[in-house]
Design a protein around this nucleic acid. Structure first.
Lengths: 204, 204
DNA sequence: TTGCGTTGAGAACGATCGTTCTCTAGACTT
DNA sequence: AAGTCTAGAGAACGATCGTTCTCAACGCAA
């Protein structure tokens, strides 16, 4: 087992522990036990706990982006791709140990006293908005739709985490349909002439 | 200065400290200094730190509900009342020390290891949904609109907190308008006959 | 085999934190 | 004035935690 394999073992164990119990309530000793490595090796690979935390968050960022993109790519039309975001959320919310967005949690717990954590949380959220922005661009509607859809997704994450309602993803999906279709209608009417509040079928 | 005044002083100081720095990074000594009371009196009024935390959260729940209701009552029509929620959020997000929803933060930091905190966070979110539910009921549309509007509000809170974009409230407001009007249209067409996807002016 | 570098196990250290205790000074009662 | 109760200041205690250190065991080259 080489250095990189040890790193991954540690990160995987830390991710599980930190996600389910929070960062500050998991000590390095528990992490050592869970990862099955010695404290010596742990500190050799990660000079401080903050390094573990950041490695976990970076790993989570990558996993999340890849999982989302995979889900979205499987969808057909641009409109379906946008809606696939909420399917991705729904699957995630139904996982047994779901406990909200790791970056929202990290920001809430450490963001005020740890700017590295605050930064990566911000980057994660901004890049999600950007990702939605690219999908929105393809259907040629106002970019502000991307922010609206992001708000629904963020809200679904915190709602599902705190209240336990995994259906939040479905409500977000329904709302997203309405918002997308309204944006499409508006784009359609704008391109055909100003001030005409046209009535276009929602599956246009 | 009587017992109750001391309690309020302590809760006010704790609220400020906990909200801006998180719960676990604020010690009882700092709270003592900020509140200007002796450690003895502090423990006399709150037998443990958890009691302070819970008192802070209960106070925040009341303040939040009152502030929101005040804002909503000032609005005229039921539709405007629903939209006033996002005006309330906008004002809040622009406050200098805004750092997200205190209950989301508390849940993220302590929810996994402190069921009192998890419970009050859940209660807060559920009662917000219920509050929106009552407003939605008055305009006679599908109750699921309340959940959708709640998702927008929750999403705006985390987005504004993490990315610093106070405009999230405005985007949520715009999205809420679209969702409300779509629900009104749907209710209108349902009451006039089934399967007629009628085109009703959005200010109906 | 001897010597050297590495590793694991876990003790040790220093800091922090929640909580309690001590000591002292002042207020109030009789 | 003497005694009693209360309260403030902060030391002290015990636990926890991040981090480092010790020491013995092991692998391995010469």
């Amino acid at each position: 087992m080489n250095k990189e394999e040890y790193r991954q073992r540690i990160i995987a164990a830390a991710d599980r522990l930190y996600y389910t119990r929070g960062f500050s309530s998991v000590g390095m000793d528990q992490l050592r036990d869970a990862a099955g490595v010695s404290l010596r090796r742990l500190y050799q690979l990660f000079p401080s706990k903050n390094d573990v935390v950041m490695a976990v968050l970076r790993g989570r960022r990558r996993m999340w982006a890849e999982g989302l993109d995979e889900h979205v790519r499987a969808a057909g039309t641009p409109r379906e791709k946008l809606l696939a975001v909420y399917g991705f959320l729904s699957d995630w919310f139904c996982e047994e140990d779901f406990r909200g967005c790791g970056f929202i949690n990290a920001f809430a717990e450490l963001g005020a006293v740890n700017s590295d954590v605050a930064d990566i949380a911000r980057e994660h959220k901004v890049s999600f908005q950007r990702y939605l922005g690219e999908l929105v661009e393809r259907i040629g509607v106002d970019p502000s739709l991307a922010v609206q859809l992001a708000l629904l997704a963020e809200g679904a994450q915190t709602t599902a985490a705190i209240t336990g309602q995994a259906e939040a993803a479905d409500r977000a999906h329904e709302a997203a349909e309405v918002l997308i279709d309204a944006a499409l209608e508006r784009a359609g009417s704008d391109s055909r002439g100003k001030n005409s509040r046209a009535c276009v079928p929602s599956d246009a």
